[in-house]
Design a protein around this nucleic acid. Structure first.
Length: 420
DNA sequence: AATACACCTTAAGA
DNA sequence: ATCTTAAGGTGTA
């Protein structure tokens, strides 16, 4: 292969409480970062970006493809003024600020969440710098279709295989090849499903191919990106989405559900990490357990939680943590991961259960007052949201409010009415 | 409408 | 050593 161009190291001042890459890059939101020789590397916008971090700075360098490709023109940065230094870096600094969502002040968000929630205050100190990445929506979508009934290690391997077999080669770092993520078109061919099964994707092979086909053939160009949160400063609306109407969080979520292999949880992952909807709270088995253990949600009769429960958990956390509930959720999710259990995982060590009186209280209350989809918290939340969103939301909200008890029925009615 | 059940694969626990 | 379970769930009957 021809010699690739490798930049010198540059650096960005970042406090560890604002960003901890060692946690953020392996806590199950991106499955693409690989750690080689003490540096994290991943393909971002047609280049391999490598990262190292010390207590004051994030250090980065770039490996460009040996042969020029269309990505060499920085796809970002038409809006923000570009400094001279940045031009020298081919826009990678802007790219990183964007990808790492650095416009949000994580320190004050942690303070906010801690003030509102004793449990967060208890768990968060050992998991500072956990930040939601602003990832590519398509990549996020496919990665989380892979995530069902799966573990982070295998998901990462699957994503790697997808890139190796169907994505363009970008370059080599530490002797290893780095490929970009495949396009939807690259995954539409007839033989792909069988091949993915051979590669160990299991039943997700079909979901991936079907979703790729829907996105490539049955949706307008830029459709997925048009579901981006237009008010999120970290998410530029992709140029491909020009001309398409923007969506609300609920609309984005609803539209994602039409794809194969995408249920409520995966849709929320895409909303949160790929479309900039900070209020999206993916409720998976971990989050459900956390909700039961620490937030008074009762044991479910069914093995899988139903829609009412799913919504109730999300609503509760949005109520508690506010507009960036998904970010806070990610901190507690990370704290619950087996990978990080050496840092004192309250979930399994039971130390907390024993020494903290309040947890015992919680268990008591559990028996009487289960936190079922409740009217009160919903109403308060809706008032608040209505002020910051458009009138359409306020209306739909008003309808739902009257009907919380029979919730599932009427909500259907609402979505039917909307689609007409 | 809500609840079971099957679904690929792998690795850690029992 | 063999079996069971759980891993960031979803589609279907």
């Amino acid at each position: 292969m021809a010699a690739a161009k490798v930049s010198a190291w540059s650096r960005l001042p970042v406090n560890l409480t604002e960003l901890c890459i060692d946690t953020t890059l392996r806590c199950g939101q991106s499955f693409r970062w690989r750690k080689l020789n003490d540096e994290w590397s991943c393909v971002l916008h047609g280049r391999v970006v490598s990262l190292k971090q010390d207590s004051t700075h994030l250090h980065y360098r770039v490996t460009w493809p040996a042969t020029r490709n269309e990505f060499l023109t920085p796809p970002l940065s038409t809006k923000s003024p570009v400094s001279d230094a940045n031009v020298l870096q081919d826009g990678t600094e802007d790219l990183l600020r964007h990808y790492l969502s650095l416009k949000l002040d994580l320190g004050s968000l942690y303070e906010q969440w801690s003030a509102a929630d004793p449990n967060f205050r208890k768990r968060a100190p050992k998991f500072e710098g956990v930040r939601i990445l602003s990832q590519d929506a398509w990549e996020t979508l496919i990665a989380f279709i892979c995530s069902s009934n799966n573990n982070i290690s295998r998901i990462s391997q699957m994503v790697l295989k997808l890139c190796q077999h169907y994505g363009p080669l970008i370059g080599h770092v530490g002797g290893e090849a780095f490929h970009d993520f495949p396009t939807p078109e690259a995954l539409c061919a007839k033989e792909v499903e069988a091949h993915l099964r051979e590669l160990g994707f299991g039943y997700r092979a079909k979901y991936i191919v079907q979703t790729a086909r829907i996105v490539a053939h049955e949706r307008p160009k830029g459709w997925l990106d048009s579901l981006t949160n237009p008010d999120n400063p970290n998410f530029r609306r992709a140029p491909e989405a020009d001309g398409l109407p923007s969506a609300t969080y609920k609309e984005a979520h609803e539209k994602l559900l039409e794809l194969t292999g995408v249920g409520p949880k995966v849709a929320d992952c895409v909303c949160l990490m790929g479309l900039g909807w900070g209020e999206a709270v993916p409720v998976d088995t971990h989050v459900w357990q956390i909700a039961q253990r620490d937030y008074k949600f009762g044991k479910a009769k069914a093995k899988t939680l139903n829609k009412a429960m799913y919504d109730a958990v999300g609503d509760h956390f949005r109520e508690l943590w506010g507009a960036y509930a998904g970010w806070a959720h990610s901190v507690l999710f990370t704290a619950d991961l087996k990978t990080f259990s050496e840092r004192g995982n309250g979930a399994k060590t039971e130390e907390i259960t024993k020494q903290e009186g309040e947890v015992v209280m919680v268990k008591k209350e559990e028996e009487e007052g289960l936190r079922v989809p409740e009217v009160v918290s919903n109403r308060t939340k809706r008032r608040r949201r209505a002020t910051q969103t458009d009138i359409k939301v306020e209306v739909t909200v008003g309808v739902a409010e009257d009907v919380v008890e029979q919730s599932p029925k009427r909500r259907r009615t609402r979505s039917q009415a909307k689609s007409k």
